[in-house]
C-alpha cells in the first residue's frame, strides 16, 4: 500500500492508534489466513496468534525500516510468533480439526458461519505432508504471493534454502496428488 509508509510513520512517531488501526484492518486477513494454515486450521489459536502479532508490531514499530515492505515485516513477526508458540507447546504435529468455512474460498469468508466444509481431505491434509519449513515456504510463495527474497527475509533464511524448501514441497505435493 502506498500510504503504508505514512501510516507507519504516524504510528511510530506520534503513537497514532487510528493510523495503526488502519494498518491492522488492511493486513488482518492475510496474516490470519497465514496463521490459520500454519496451525492446521485452528481458528481460535490463529486469531490469538494474529492478535499477538499485531501487538508486537505496535510495540516494535519504531524499529521498522522503510527499506523493507511493511507486509514483509509483519509476516516475519507472524512467523516468529507462531514458532515461539510451537516451541512452547513442544509439539510439532498440527491439529487435525475441521475448518468451518462458508461458501467458496475468496468470497469474503467469515470463519464463524455455517455450513461446515471439511477441508481436511483437501488442503489442510495436503499441508500436513510437508515439514514445517516447507509448509511455511509453500504458503508464503503460492498463497501469499511473496517472492523468494521476501520469504528469505521473513524466515531469516538464505534464499537458496528457501528454494530447496520450495523444490521439496513441490515434489511432495506432486507425489501426493499422483
Amino acid at each position: 500500500m502506498q500510504n503504508d509508509a505514512l501510516l507507519v510513520s504516524r504510528a511510530a512517531l506520534l503513537g497514532d492508534r487510528k493510523a495503526f488501526s488502519r494498518l491492522v484492518e488492511a493486513y488482518q486477513s492475510p496474516i490470519r489466513r497465514f496463521l490459520f494454515n500454519l496451525t492446521g486450521g485452528d481458528e481460535e489459536l490463529s486469531k490469538d496468534l494474529a492478535q499477538d502479532t499485531f501487538v508486537k508490531a505496535w510495540l516494535n514499530i519504531g524499529q521498522f525500516r522503510a527499506a523493507a515492505k511493511f507486509s514483509t515485516w509483519l509476516y516475519r513477526i507472524a512467523y516468529n510468533t507462531f514458532y515461539d508458540y510451537a516451541r512452547v507447546k513442544a509439539s510439532t504435529s498440527l491439529s487435525n480439526r475441521t475448518l468451518s468455512v462458508v461458501e467458496t474460498p475468496g468470497n469474503g469468508t467469515d470463519y464463524k458461519s455455517a455450513p461446515t466444509i471439511d477441508f481436511n481431505i483437501d488442503f489442510l491434509q495436503t499441508l500436513k505432508i510437508l515439514k514445517e519449513d516447507e509448509r511455511t515456504v509453500m504458503l508464503l510463495f503460492y498463497m501469499e504471493d511473496q517472492t523468494v527474497e521476501k520469504i528469505s527475509k521473513i524466515m531469516n533464511c538464505p534464499a537458496n534454502t528457501i528454494k530447496s524448501h520450495l523444490h521439496r514441497g513441490k515434489e511432495k505435493i506432486s507425489k501426493y496428488f499422483k
Binding site: 488482518q28 489466513r33 490459520f36 494474529a50 474460498p105 483437501d122 498463497m143 505435493i173
Partner: peptide, 16 residues
C-alpha cells in the same frame, strides 16, 4: 491449488 483455498477473512471486530 493454493489460490483456490485463499480465503478473504472478514474483520468482524478483530481490528477493534
Amino acid at each position: 491449488l493454493f489460490t483456490s483455498y485463499k480465503v478473504d477473512i472478514r474483520d468482524d471486530g478483530f481490528s477493534e
